[in-house]
Design a protein around this nucleic acid. Structure first.
Lengths: 201, 201
DNA sequence: GGGTATACGTACCGATCGGTAACACGTCAA
DNA sequence: TTGACGTGTTACCGATCGGTACGTATACCC
């Protein structure tokens, strides 16, 4: 007997892998409510799967958290590079674009800051899988900001790069602390003032 | 039979109240390792008391956390006012003194940032007892920084005050993320540049 | 000495934590 | 036809979570 033709194409009918569903849900819950605040039971329940499925795809909750942050990392650099690519050869405009975007995001009602930063606060112990991902992300961000400060022709590129990083981290935190109308909305303006004051005359 | 004379004076022999011991230990553990990470069992064990003693002095763990933060709040403003009082009538020097101190603290090996900020990250839910204390502290800090910016004669006092707050929060976070040699050590320098760029010409 | 208030400890509670063992089922390719 | 594989199901694990019922020891006042 001839086999029945599939109604829709195979890649459309392919059910989402359990691991993917879990990561999607975990990502959302971890970001919004914190990693420690969310239990694995809630994750599998919301994902419509069962606990053994979670532990077939991820060796532990800590590693699931690290996976969430690795995905967050990719998306972060996508956003960052988007601002960079919008202004080729103009690092000051690149920073301005990136910060304008952050400033806007921080003014959204349910803004919860940077997943990386939050994870590092939740897990202060050295060597925690989630913290390792977070630290690597921040190191790289620092490196890039300093390089951009140098490309701008700053008097002291490392100081300016670090100053920009402080403003950014401050915006992440203030965004979730103050909500609408908080200090984070002025991050781009303050960064611009700081840059102006740091350039070679 | 005649009662035995006390060897030392009564107020020296008075044992520390259980509630005080608990708060001391909780303060240390909550700050260093996070509130969610510490269970009440560990607190009472380290304090050398028992669980019912904790719940006689504090209605819940959440309220214990709030008490920790209220004490943290008092000590925070002590440090802040110390910097302010060291330079009467000179808000710019007051800020500089305060930030120099923060910059130094962030370079200590086991620096863990601001207890207020960390608590707000750990408890994103509106209305949590710990978060309420934290938010109030930050609101007041923002108010004071804006007032000091105005007293300095800034072009836009609210923007400068908020910029200083962003740098401060950034220093708290970066201090615990990067450890020694991190961006937080440049907070005073960057604040000074930002102030210089914000004053009326 | 007797009463009382305060402070503390022993032992326990149900719920939830992260994680696992054992087995049934369906799909797909060889 | 036959596995291999991924998944779901159910039931369970020991540990820890925040919180409490209840009895006891001590100090002080009358």
């Amino acid at each position: 007997m001839k086999s029945i033709e599939p109604i829709i194409s195979p890649d459309e009918v392919t059910p989402p892998r359990a691991g993917e569903k879990i990561l999607r849900v975990a990502r959302d819950l971890f970001y919004r409510r914190g990693i420690r605040a969310i239990g694995v039971d809630e994750i599998v329940k919301r994902a419509g799967v069962t606990k053994p499925s979670l532990y077939r795809s991820f060796p532990s909750k800590d590693e699931l958290a690290a996976s969430y942050l690795r995905q967050y990392d990719l998306e972060f650099w996508d956003r960052f590079d988007e601002a960079v690519n919008a202004h080729p050869g103009n690092p000051r405009a690149q920073i301005a674009a990136f910060l304008a975007r952050i400033g806007k995001r921080t003014q959204k009602p349910d803004y919860r800051g940077c997943g990386m930063t939050n994870a590092a606060v939740e897990y202060p112990e050295d060597g925690h899988p989630a913290r390792i991902v977070s630290e690597a992300n921040k190191q790289e961000l620092r490196r890039r900001l300093r390089a951009m400060a140098a490309a701008m022709g700053a008097n002291d590129p490392d100081t300016l790069g670090d100053g920009l990083l402080l403003l950014i981290e401050g915006a992440y935190i203030s965004g979730q602390l103050f909500g609408l109308g908080g200090p984070a909305k002025s991050v781009a303006r303050n960064a611009d003032l700081l840059i102006e004051a740091s350039l070679k005359k």
